[in-house]
């Protein structure tokens, strides 16, 4: 348990720092790379939470595919590969209090609701088979709906991005 705790805290600190860099850095490509760190950290947390398959999917889909998309997006919109000064808008000052108020609200709610509650010690790793039994059993209809969402997204992205 201690090893896991240490792992959690290291990853958590890394994630928070990287996330802050994502929203503050002045370089779009750097932001994307920091985002990779956050996403990889999230995958690590998933493993700590006994979710192997989700962690692997996270790596494959997010770090593998979504990040490539982001970098392509950066490239195609000719963002400068380097520092830029005007990445933030004038509402920056509004963002900080909003985020803080939100954090306070959530923090209050969390401490009140869960306090010192611990996660079960002997949680067993959820196997891929169990997840697939769930997806193709009771959650089949959402799965289908999701397939259509993906199809629509593919078609939509092509229609939006092609040159006429």
């Amino acid at each position: 348990m201690i090893a896991q705790n240490i792992g959690f805290w290291i990853i958590a600190v890394l994630m928070v720092v990287s996330a802050l860099r994502v929203v503050t850095t002045n370089n779009v490509v750097h932001a994307a790379l920091w985002l990779v760190v956050v996403l990889a950290g999230a995958a690590g947390q998933y493993i700590l939470l006994a979710a192997e398959f989700v962690a692997i999917t996270q790596v494959l889909v997010y770090i593998g595919a979504v990040m490539v998309l982001f970098l392509f997006g950066t490239m195609l919109t000719r963002a400068r590969i380097g520092a830029e000064s005007d990445l933030n808008n004038s509402y920056k000052k509004l963002g900080i209090p909003v985020a803080l108020v939100m954090l306070v609200a959530m923090g209050l709610a969390l401490t009140r609701s869960f306090g010192d509650e611990k996660l079960p010690e002997s949680a067993k790793v959820v196997s891929t088979q169990e997840v697939s039994d769930q997806i193709f059993g009771p959650y089949l209809l959402p799965f289908w709906a999701l397939s259509f969402v993906l199809l629509a997204a593919v078609v939509g992205a092509i229609v939006l991005a092609r040159k006429d």
Binding site: N89, Y91, G95, V101, M102, A105, M106, L108, A109
Partner: peptide, 22 residues
């Protein structure tokens, strides 16, 4: 401006959540 709308939306949600929690 989208950012402003977003800011208003999130702040309203945050304040409402805070009120609810309290």
């Amino acid at each position: 401006k989208v950012s402003q709308y977003g800011a208003l939306l999130f702040s309203a949600a945050a304040v409402a959540a805070l009120v609810l929690v309290i």
